[in-house]
Amino acid sequence: MAAVRWRGQSTRQAQLQRVAAYCLAPATIVFLLLIAYPLASVLWDAAHYVNLTNPSVSGFAGFDNFTNVLGDERFWPDFWHTGLWTLVSVAGEYALGLASAIALAQPSWGRGVSRAVILIPWVIPIVVAGLTWTWMLTPDYGILNLWLVKAGLLAKPFYWLGGLNTALMTVAVVNIWRSFPFYTVCLLAALMAIPKEMIESAAIDGAGPIRRFFHITMPSIRVVSLTIIFIHVIATAINFDFIWVMTQGGPLNASETLPILIYRFALEDFDVGAASALATMTIGFMLAVFFVYWYGTRSRRAEAV
């Protein structure tokens, strides 16, 4: 009896494993086809001398590429720029996404239209959005500076993208503008899934709106929030387009982040080895962030149990 049961479990287990394998197969194929080879070539190049304009150097480089990258005077500033850019962008996106999702979850006149309008930044291609914002922000012939001056908020037009201290933050604001609608969609979906009765019964118990927000709303959207935040931290840290289109990392590298530096290594210095080493390090940093996040939430989960 016991043996039969054990066998039954085993076939059940084997069957489940098969089901899992079938379900994972398509994603695995796409991964192997399009990601595995590029990833492998990045790791391979990181350990080799690869220079497109200098065929005379080649062969195994050991950690040379890594030491070259770490020794580059732009590395640490760019590292901090990347962190700042990611932090400001994701925090701003989440704040705006949450605020807009809550506002859109309320019954209001013209809700459908506002929901569609808020998505508009997201459907404008990044290159076009970047160029348009750059133009609108220009001091001499941009409409935003003109209005800010007319409204008395600025004494004279300011070159937002040209200042050493403002360039990166200005691009971050535009990035927030463009990216927060995705948060809105996800958070709105999560908010709408909260049963009305839960909120009403809390209100009957005398919970005010702030209390209701922190005790019912936030816990209900926690999983979605953590997922989109985590995924956007990665996507923002490796984002290249916005900064490239708007400032190319300038002025004087003030808005240069690690992905821009990777681009410069690869397509300006033609040093594919250094570019790959930096990309490998970037992946390493992000895995470290992931493990911190993972173990942080795991110990919390364990406490909850």
Binding site: A20, L24, T28, F31, P38, A235, I238, I283
Partner: peptide, 23 residues
């Protein structure tokens, strides 16, 4: 297998697009 695919997907998010253009 699931865990392997999950981590593979996670890592694939982390590769900068500019560098995998040529491969």
């Amino acid at each position: 297998l699931t865990q392997a695919v999950g981590s593979a997907l996670l890592v694939s998010q982390m590769i900068p697009g500019v560098l995998i253009l040529a491969p």
